[in-house]
Amino acid sequence: MKAVGPARRLAEHELRLLVSIALWMARRQHGTRSGRAFGYARGQGAPMLGFGFVCVLETIAMAVLLRPWPAIERSVLVLDLYGVLQVVGMHAASVSRPHVLDDTSLRIRRAAHVDLSVPLDLIASVRRETRSTHEKREGELDLAIGAQTTITLELTEPIRHFTFLGRPRNVRLIRFHADEPDVLVRAIREMRTLAPAPRTY
């Protein structure tokens, strides 16, 4: 994957959020035609709804308070509506961009800002492991949903991951969340037995 600048990455992220809202409203999913989809957004639905409700209340309150100053009111209204759109977009992206497993790779995603393809022949082990605390360590990637990960993936060699603003990282251990971790772990193990033999150099 080629690195791109922070400004372009931010623009692409915003576009993915908008596309995700359209997909969510149409009850469609992105990138699932070639494989089996596994959701991860179930655990964050209620918190996201609550956060969105707070944002809407704040928008209404600020509109009332700033009514005597129309220019400021309009500016704040635009920012508040943008915040609401971000919340809706994040949840929509989480629903419409699930993990995808096919016969060659596992595509691990989190909303609109993480999309990492892991070749099956690089997976050394996969296990169900529920964690609610994560320490930042070199070579490890934690993709928690609601502060929790449920699957741990260990690789035979590092793969390249780019952070939100484009900083490259080599990761060899990935923890992520799935709504049905046991089902996904079992499916990965079954696919690994069908995948080509591990790479040798």
Rank of each mutant, 00 (worst) to 15 (best):
V185K: 06
M1G: 13
L101F: 04
E138K: 02
M62Q: 14
L65S: 03
A22G: 14
P168N: 06
Q148H: 03
R27A: 02
Y201V: 09
M62V: 14
Y201I: 05
P68T: 08
L10P: 02
D142K: 04
P119C: 05
L77C: 14
R199A: 05
V126Q: 08
I21W: 06
T156L: 01
F164G: 05
S34E: 13
L153M: 07
R74L: 15
F51E: 11
L85I: 07
L153I: 04
A92E: 08
T152F: 04
R16E: 11
S125D: 14
F164D: 08
H134R: 10
L153N: 07
H30S: 12
I21M: 13
G50D: 01
P196N: 02
L116Y: 03
A178L: 04
L116I: 14
T152K: 06
R131E: 10
R97T: 07
V118L: 01
L23M: 11
A195P: 01
K136T: 11
Q29L: 08
T193A: 10
F164P: 09
A195L: 03
R110V: 14
R33W: 02
E12H: 03
N170A: 10
S34K: 12
V4Q: 14
D80T: 15
G39E: 03
P181N: 03
A147F: 02
G35S: 08
N170Y: 08
H177Q: 03
G43K: 04
T200I: 09
L173G: 05
R189Y: 00
A124T: 01
T152Y: 01
G45F: 15
G146N: 14
T149K: 02
T193E: 12
L194V: 00
R131C: 14
G139A: 03
R36P: 01
V76C: 12
R36K: 10
V19S: 14
V185E: 06
L10G: 08
P119N: 05
R27F: 05
A22L: 13
A71D: 14
S105W: 07
E190F: 00
G43E: 13
F164Y: 13
L153H: 09
R110M: 13
H134G: 07
